[in-house]
Design a protein around this nucleic acid. Structure first.
Ligand code: MN
Ligand code: MN
Ligand code: ZN
Ligand code: ZN
Lengths: 143, 143
DNA sequence: GATACGAATTGGACTCTGTCTAATCCCATC
DNA sequence: GATGGGATTAGACAGAGTCCAATTCGTATC
């Protein structure tokens, strides 16, 4: 969890991962880590170019892929339409509102999975996702 | 779990859900229930048209959506690239091999989730997915 | 300051999954 | 064998994401 969003700190966070801190990468990291929300590539593109266009779609995709490969952010696959990028890399799970698209974190510490079967032979674990799909409660009938 | 793949039984399975058993729908149901595998829309299209083309892409998408809406099959979202359709509608979870794309079922009976936090206020549960991402074990070094 | 060079960025074409629509087809009923 | 409504269809379309060759950037060296 990155709490210091200053330019100097973002530079060192990128450098720690061997990522050259270019202007575009800094802007994208800033968008992700200042908000700590689950953003799609298109949302990142729009936020980065909010004032005036300065970063291309190709660079946003290049950079998000680079951030994922280096473990700076995590992909969240809950919706068939698009990938979300999650600046929270601590182990955790998600609520997903299938109507609004809203994604909410669930602390992994709080949850235990009992009776998990052995991995298929010849396979090694690469991660676990728990997704609780929710929808807005229907208003009480007659209310 | 549908064990009888005879034409007559598929007709009655569709009728039970209020789905008119057209030739194309029967073929698609047959492809899904005779294999009991997790298939993408494109795989269904190719399998249905294996011999000679008889069903359009539009009909495959229409029919899969209809099957999902009526609870005959279930969508599995594990891969950003495409949706898989699962003829197993019993509650269960999945192993997903991120390299081969192979999907394997995990019986939900065997697994218990302890300490699940309360749903966000105003939300009602619509389902839970557990996805264990795996990859082929690296060959032993020096072997 | 000018030059050189590898790395990063870019526009735009392209692929792929999935949606939409208007025309046509199918088929049960009369 | 006409009628009518649902199902199917081709193909245009939309949106996410990839790819590539050309350009630009940042930095190191002179
Ligand atoms: Mn800025
Ligand atoms: Mn068949
Ligand atoms: Zn998250
Ligand atoms: Zn399954």
């Amino acid at each position: 969890m990155i709490t210091d969003h200053s330019r100097e700190n973002l530079v060192s966070v990128l450098r720690q991962r061997g990522i050259g801190p270019t202007h575009q990468r800094m802007e994208i990291a800033h968008v992700l880590f200042s908000r700590m929300e689950h953003l799609s590539a298109d949302q990142v593109l729009c936020l980065v170019n909010g004032r005036h266009a300065e970063t291309s779609k190709a660079t946003v995709y290049n950079t998000l892929k680079l951030f994922v490969e280096t473990g700076l952010v995590r992909e969240v696959i809950v919706d068939a339409a698009k990938v979300f990028y999650d600046p929270n890399t601590a182990p955790h799970h998600h609520f997903y509102d299938v109507e609004s698209g809203e994604i909410t974190d669930i602390d992994a510490e709080a949850v235990t999975i009992v009776g998990m079967p052995a991995l298929p032979p010849g396979k090694v674990a690469a991660g676990m996702d728990v997704i609780i799909r929710v929808r807005p409660a229907a208003p009480a009938p007659g209310a």
